[in-house]
Amino acid sequence: MMITVAIADLACVRGGTDEVLVTYALGSCVGVCLYDEIERTAGLIHIMLPWSRDAAYDDNRRRYADTGITELIGKMISLGASKSRLVAKIAGGAQMFGSASWMFNIGERNVEAAEHVLGAYDIPVIGRDVGGSCARTLYLHTDTGLAEVKTAMRQIRTL
């Protein structure tokens, strides 16, 4: 069964089933997968922006790397995951309109922020497919912790 994670949203499940978490079309957004291999707890978040402190007005904590990842870790622990066993895989952080000089490279900053937040929680990033200029769809198989990245152009890549 597929569980879709929308933009600026997250989901986590107690794995060991055939459920797959999926988030579609990550552009400059970053998808972060967290997995506890022993408890088979899996979580996925689709973040849009790096830091919640830069928000002009906002009510959605899941939009930002710092508050979103923190919330996901908390939810996974309440499902039985152990923080010390969590590992992360990340994908996204592209620049969709590559050449436009007036755009900030928000993708790169999202990746930096996500890795910084994960580092602060001592969660190792064991797989990444980031940067470039193409959109990615990210699947997380909750029974194995296997992550797959699909793009419009190339073969599916396994993380």
Partner: peptide, 9 residues
């Protein structure tokens, strides 16, 4: 590219 990623821009 994928429209979802473009709409997020």
């Amino acid at each position: 590219d994928m429209v979802g990623a473009i709409l997020a821009v």
